[in-house]
Design a protein around this nucleic acid. Structure first.
Length: 481
RNA sequence: CGGGAUGUGGCUCAGGUGGUAGAGCGCUACUUUAGGGAAGUAGAGGCCGCAAGUUCAAGUCUUGUCAUUCCGACCA
C-alpha cells in the first residue's frame, strides 16, 4: 500500500536491520531515554502512558476475579532467599545486593527483589492460620531488579515494572484452577487489548520457573519471526509452603500445607506491541492502549477559525461515548512534520481540518495502521472516529494473527526443523518425546528453544522430531527474545 | 560472560603523519510560509565519556575503565 511506504529517514527499515529498527522506534516515539546506569531506562511520558493504560485494564480484569492489591518491601534478607533451593539457584546469578546501610556494613546483606515469592511466603506463614483464611489472592505492582548482562529497552532491562500475583489455596485443585484462570486473563488481555494473538501452553521442565511445579505461558510471535514470552503463570504446588512452613488447620482439624501460584506480566509487553504492530514509519498503537487515540492537525492554523474549529472537534470527540482520547497539535510545525511525528508515536487516527474542509463541512481522517484516508462529514465525526477506532483494534489483531499463522510451520524431521529455522523465521510445530536431551540438542544445534506445549495439541507425527522415539507432546519451537 | 563496533554542542557526524574546536540538523527571537518533515536573518550552546601515562604540547598516541549498540550463551 503506497501510503504505508517508509516516509521517515530517521527510522531504519525493519527489513534492513530489525534490531536497529526497534531501537530507532523506541527513541523516535520517545518512549524511553537511556541513563547512566546500564540497563536502567527513563520511561518517558509517551512510554509511561502506555504502561498506565496496560496497568489499568489489566488491574480491572484482575479485580473481576477477586484479586486484591498489596505492597511488599523491595529488600529480601539473604537467609529468606535461600529457603527454597531451586528458586535461589535460579535467581542468585542475577540479583543485586545491598551490603551497607549508610557507612556501616549490614549484618546480613539484602537482595533487591528479583521476584517476591520468598517475601510473600514469609508473610503468608503468619497470615494464614485456618482454612477460613484461604484463598489469598494478592497482587502487587512494583519494579524488580535482575542484573542482566545484555540489556535492551523494554525487552531486557535491569530494573523493570511489572505486576506479580501471589496466591495461596487450600487444595492443589484450587491452585491449578487459579493458575489457568490467570493465564486465560493474560491471553484474553493480550488479544483484546494489545491486539496480540498468543499461544497458550505449558513450559517444559527445562524452561519452567525456578521452584515451580508447572509453568504456563503465553507466547507471541514478533514481526521478525522471533518468539516473545509475554506472560507466565506458575503453579508451585506445596513446594514453597513446605520450605517456608506455611500451614493451616483444615476443616477436619488437621494441619495442611497451602498450595500456591504466582503470575506476572511486565513492561516487556510494550516491546511486544512495538515488534508486533510497528512498521517502517514507527510505532503503531492499538487504540485501547494509545494514550492519544486521535490527533487533530489543523491546516493553515493561522487562518481565522481553523484553531477554533479544531478545538471544537476536540471537545466533541472527548465527550463522545466513554470519551475519546484526543489532542490538537497546534504547534507551529508544518503539517508534514506533524504527520510524521504522530506516525512515529503510533497515534491510531489523525484528523486533518483546514479552511477548505471547514467550508465544505468535512474533514479528512487518516488511519495509522493501514494509511487509509477518508473524507468525513463533520456531522458524522464522532460516530466515524469511534467506529474506526474499533475497526483498527479488530484489524490489528487479525493482521497479527495472519502474520503469525503464516509464520508457523511444521517439521517432522531434524532436516526440516533445521531448514525452517534457518530460512523461515517463526514458530515450528514438532513432536517431542519428553526427554530434555532432545531439547538440549535442538537448542545447541539451532539455538531454538521449546516455547511451550500448547493446550491445543495436534498429532503431527508419532515420533520425536529429534530422537525418533515415540512422541509425547506437540511443541512450539522457535528462537526467542 | 565471550566477540565486533562506537563514545567530540540536544541529535547525526567531520576533525591525514600530535599544535589549542568544526559542519548540518535541532534550539531561541523575529519575518514570510502552511493539505506529507518549508525558508530567511540574527543568536545561544563544547574542561572532545572518565582516569592515568608519553610529550614543550593530546580530540588525535599508550594503558586502563565506564557506557551505548550489535552478534552469541543466560533470563520476563
Amino acid at each position: 500500500m503506497a501510503e504505508n511506504k517508509k516516509k521517515v529517514e530517521a527510522i531504519t527499515s525493519m527489513d534492513v536491520d530489525f534490531a536497529q529498527w526497534y531501537t530507532d522506534v523506541v527513541k523516535k516515539a520517545e518512549l524511553i531515554d537511556y541513563t547512566s546506569v546500564k540497563g536502567c531506562m527513563v520511561i518517558k511520558p509517551a512510554g509511561y502512558a502506555i504502561w498506565e493504560l496496560i496497568q489499568k485494564q489489566l488491574d480491572d480484569r484482575f479485580k473481576e476475579t477477586g484479586v486484591e492489591n498489596v505492597y511488599l518491601p523491595m529488600f529480601i534478607p539473604e537467609s529468606l532467599l535461600q529457603k527454597e533451593k531451586d528458586h535461589v539457584e535460579g535467581f542468585a546469578p542475577e540479583v543485586a545486593w545491598v551490603t551497607h546501610g549508610g557507612l556501616n556494613p549490614l549484618q546480613e546483606r539484602l537482595c533487591v527483589r528479583p521476584t517476591s515469592e520468598t517475601l510473600f511466603c514469609d508473610f503468608y506463614k503468619n497470615d494464614i492460620q485456618s482454612y477460613r483464611d484461604l484463598p489469598k489472592v494478592y497482587n502487587q505492582w512494583c519494579s524488580v531488579v535482575r542484573w542482566e548482562k545484555e540489556t535492551r529497552p523494554f525487552l531486557r532491562s535491569r530494573e523493570f515494572l511489572w505486576q506479580e500475583g501471589h496466591t495461596a489455596h487450600a487444595t492443589a485443585e484450587d491452585a491449578e484452577a487459579r493458575t489457568i484462570q490467570m493465564l486465560n486473563v493474560y491471553a484474553d488481555f493480550c488479544e483484546q487489548v494489545l491486539a496480540i494473538p498468543v499461544i497458550k501452553g505449558r513450559k517444559t521442565d527445562k524452561e519452567k520457573f525456578a521452584g515451580a511445579e508447572a509453568t504456563y505461558t503465553i507466547e507471541a510471535l514478533m514481526h521478525d519471526g522471533k518468539a516473545l514470552q509475554s506472560g507466565t503463570s506458575h503453579n508451585f504446588g506445596d513446594g514453597f509452603a513446605k520450605a517456608f512452613g506455611i500451614q493451616f488447620t483444615d476443616k477436619d482439624n488437621t494441619l495442611k500445607y497451602v498450595h500456591q501460584t504466582s503470575w506476572g506480566m511486565t513492561t516487556r509487553l510494550i516491546g511486544a506491541i512495538i515488534m508486533v504492530h510497528g512498521d517502517d514509519n514507527g510505532l503503531v498503537l492499538p487504540p485501547k492502549v494509545a494514550p492519544t487515540q486521535v490527533m487533530i492537525v489543523p491546516i493553515m492554523q493561522k487562518k481565522e477559525g481553523v484553531l477554533e474549529k479544531a478545538a471544537e472537534l476536540k471537545t466533541r470527540l472527548a465527550s463522545f461515548g466513554n470519551g475519546i482520547r484526543v489532542k490538537v497539535d497546534d504547534s507551529d510545525k508544518s503539517p508534514g512534520w506533524k504527520f510524521s511525528e504522530q506516525e512515529m508515536r503510533g497515534i491510531p487516527l489523525r484528523v486533518e481540518i483546514g479552511p477548505k474542509d471547514i467550508e465544505a463541512g468535512k474533514c479528512i481522517i487518516c488511519r495509522r495502521d493501514n494509511g487509509e484516508k477518508v473524507e468525513v462529514a463533520l456531522d458524522a465525526l464522532e460516530e466515524t472516529v469511534a467506529s474506526l477506532l474499533e475497526q483498527i483494534q479488530v484489524d490489528m489483531l487479525e493482521r497479527a494473527r495472519t502474520h503469525r499463522d503464516e509464520h508457523t510451520y511444521v517439521a517432522t524431521s531434524m532436516e526440516e526443523l533445521s531448514e525452517i529455522l534457518d530460512t523461515k523465521p517463526g514458530f515450528v510445530k514438532a513432536m517431542w518425546c519428553g526427554n530434555q536431551d532432545c531439547e538440549d540438542s535442538i537448542k545447541e544445534k539451532y539455538s531454538a528453544t521449546s516455547r511451550c506445549m500448547p493446550f491445543e495439541q495436534e498429532q503431527i507425527s508419532d515420533v520425536c522430531v529429534c530422537c525418533g522415539k515415540p512422541a509425547k507432546k506437540m511443541v512450539y519451537w522457535g528462537r526467542a527474545y
